[in-house]
Write a protein that binds this DNA or RNA. Structure first.
Lengths: 139, 139
DNA sequence: TACAAAATTGTAATCATTACAAATAAAGAA
DNA sequence: TTCTTTATTTGTAATGATTACAATTTTGTA
């Protein structure tokens, strides 16, 4: 049985308001690394009073508390990820899609005196599909 | 004998204009992960006709051509790094400083079909100095 | 010297994100 | 319940890094 957004918020001692549950639930059911704007547009129809400021507030709160991750692999805007298992991100420079991969264990003795709360691994390049389609003229 | 900014530009087949040499030279003599703004302010006194647009143009060109790396560990603004050896970045959430560390080799068989042109590893947390200073009241 | 291409410049525009004050909702006490 | 306090949400204006773009300058070459 999968944990609900509400339970996850409770686990982090965050009051589960309607808005917070909606944002987190969206991330827990869409592992597509959405932007704040994408989340807002997805939730707006069902919560017509929702404000974009609330989406930003919530995403920042969840990121600060470690409930979700903010991903800065895209220079244009932040993306968000509710996955709890360590993983790395690959972004295709052609199609822009972001792929998840298992994260190989990192040995970092050099950082033993550093209190590490977050590790992000970003790979960039071209995905197999775009490599194959290279000969096709893209507009 | 260390390679000059001019030679490095030539190595990448980029025309070594005064502005480009100045930007790259700054990065090759200041491994401090500066922002575009920091670079502009540092160069402006000696090149009074320099435009901030040129700094951005140059940084984008150098990043696209793989001469330097753009680092997005700081959510606010991009930082730039001319180091050529693989390394990881640690950002202290208290003092904001960015530290370089040797990058342990990453085994990524899962990505063998992906054409990887860039790998970035970002660690965030608290540096030893800030850990020690925790008891001091910060304003 | 003259022409074409490339690079630089200044400034306006963009646009994601934040600031902030007002409005609303929730929680607690009496 | 009703009053009071606190937390959350909302709408909108402001911020600020980055980009767009047209004009200007520089460079390369004939």
């Amino acid at each position: 049985m999968k944990e609900s957004a509400q339970d996850r918020l409770r686990r982090y001692n965050i009051k589960p308001s309607v808005q917070r549950m909606a944002v987190l639930d969206y991330l827990m059911t869409h592992y597509t690394h959405p932007t704040a704007d994408t989340i807002f547009n997805a939730l707006y129809p069902s919560i017509p009073t929702l404000s974009k400021a609330t989406v930003y507030n919530t995403l920042n709160l969840l990121t600060e508390q470690g409930v979700i991750q903010m991903i800065t692999i895209d220079e244009k805007n932040a993306r968000f990820d509710a996955r709890e298992t360590p993983h790395l991100h690959f972004r295709c420079n052609s199609c822009g899609e972001i792929f998840d991969f298992e994260l190989p264990p990192l040995q970092m003795e050099a950082l033993k005196d550093y209190d590490i709360t977050d590790v992000q691994v970003y790979c960039k390049g071209e995905c197999p599909t775009c490599q194959k389609n290279k000969h096709i003229i893209n507009n």
